[in-house]
Design a protein around this nucleic acid. Structure first.
Lengths: 230, 230
DNA sequence: GAGGCAAAAAGTGCATGCAATTGCCTCCGG
DNA sequence: CCGGAGGCAATTGCATGCACTTTTTGCCTC
């Protein structure tokens, strides 16, 4: 009833719910610890509880939400310690991708990386944070694809999305934009040389620095919502 | 089987289904490509289709099953290429764990690793493959825990379980048992020395060898069931 | 006024039912 | 004999309903 939602139904309803809820978590609209009430979500998206339940289950399997039997679901709360472990993992994963990329990227992939990277330099000059963020995402995606390893790609993207809520504000730190570009430059140069060791090290260092930049905000994000602890 | 399962219902029904179906996939009882019919599974486990559906959704999120909208679910079919990428990832993940372990294991963890490793030597002498497999699993688990990084631990266990169907027969190769132990020995020695580079390399090599040993069987496992391509 | 118990309210977990989509089989035309 | 269109059976997708668990609230007692 109610819905002519059937018109915009691209995939299955469950998939849409996974994306919809997942996006809200990843973008920080839903904060860690926030209660995810099945009935409200169902009402909010004008579907029944069944697809909502399935979506929550899948998001739980992905680690984005936490499910307590008979006690509802909440947006996954990550401890400071677990957050650190995710950043550390991310650094290693990026290092692997960069390292593999240095060895395996096709010449057209190398060319594309170089071109995009140079294009992003303009964004730095303009101080266009929003636009730079787009190039930044694209840059890292190219690294993941360039590794030519589907599974590493999957693990990396997954980890990246779980870290997304804690990375958003990183470019607000003054001078971060230019510094990020320089770090990217080190990675690109190493990849162009086919120097896998240097590429790996540069990528690891890059993430480590982002990690430290984000830690500041992570502390803020941790305690705000805690309705169930009273 | 087919029992009064309601008595032993420890977690939620969905969790049990995830474990039950997941186990059957991981242990190879359900083969890649095999159709997972919701109704049959529901009947088989004496539950309704709802928890089966949710379980399939979660297993799909984990990559163990593949879901085609409106067309049912099948046990995930991995191409030769994707399998190779998983083994390669596994090698890198194990390398990271071993490397971190070399740096971070507590002295009691080091002691435990050493003791278990020596104990497993007996299994090699006896040629007790079943028992050695237990020690082998435990050995790797210790490496994952010793890395003191929850997220890497998670990624590694996940990847390992997805590879499980293709690793089962590895110890059937003659002499594999003794060779495996020697490879473990290299890792242990490096960890004891706190040599993270050597530990990482030894772990990576270990997995690479397992990978090659398994490739033989993977080829067999790939085509058997293909009901939907006719 | 505080603490504890009990009953009700809220919310989750699973089963069942119905609509919709898919795949197959049949039948017809070429 | 082969190719295609239409209908039928089977299966998936989602909604609804009921039972059980948890939490809250109100009352009674101390």
């Amino acid at each position: 009833m109610s819905g002519k939602r059937s018109l915009i139904r691209s995939g299955t309803t469950v998939d849409q719910m996974v994306r919809a809820i997942g996006d809200r978590i990843v973008t920080g609209y839903l904060r860690p610890g926030e209660k995810l009430d099945e009935t409200s979500l169902a009402a909010r998206f004008e579907v029944s509880r069944t697809p909502v339940r399935e979506a929550l289950g899948q998001l739980s399997a992905m680690g984005l939400v936490e499910r307590r039997p008979n006690r509802g679901a909440i947006v996954a709360v990550v401890t400071q310690e677990h957050l650190a472990s995710m950043f550390e993992s991310m650094a290693e994963l990026e290092a692997i991708c960069a390292s593999f990329s240095a060895e395996r990227m096709t010449s057209s992939e190398r060319r594309g990386l170089e071109i995009e990277h140079q294009a992003s330099a303009r964004m730095v000059q303009l101080g266009a944070e929003e636009d730079y963020e787009y190039f930044n995402t694209e840059f890292h995606s190219r690294l993941y694809r360039g590794a030519h390893n589907a599974h590493i790609h999957e693990l990396t993207v997954m980890t990246r999305s779980r870290l997304a809520p804690f990375r958003r504000a990183q470019f607000m730190l003054p001078g971060r934009l230019a510094k990020s570009w320089q770090e990217h430059d080190l990675i690109v140069t190493a990849i162009m040389r086919g120097d896998s060791v240097a590429a790996g090290k540069a990528a690891r260092d890059h993430v480590s620095i982002v990690s430290e930049a984000s830690a500041v905000f992570a502390a803020d994000d941790r305690k705000p919502i805690r309705r169930d602890v009273a």
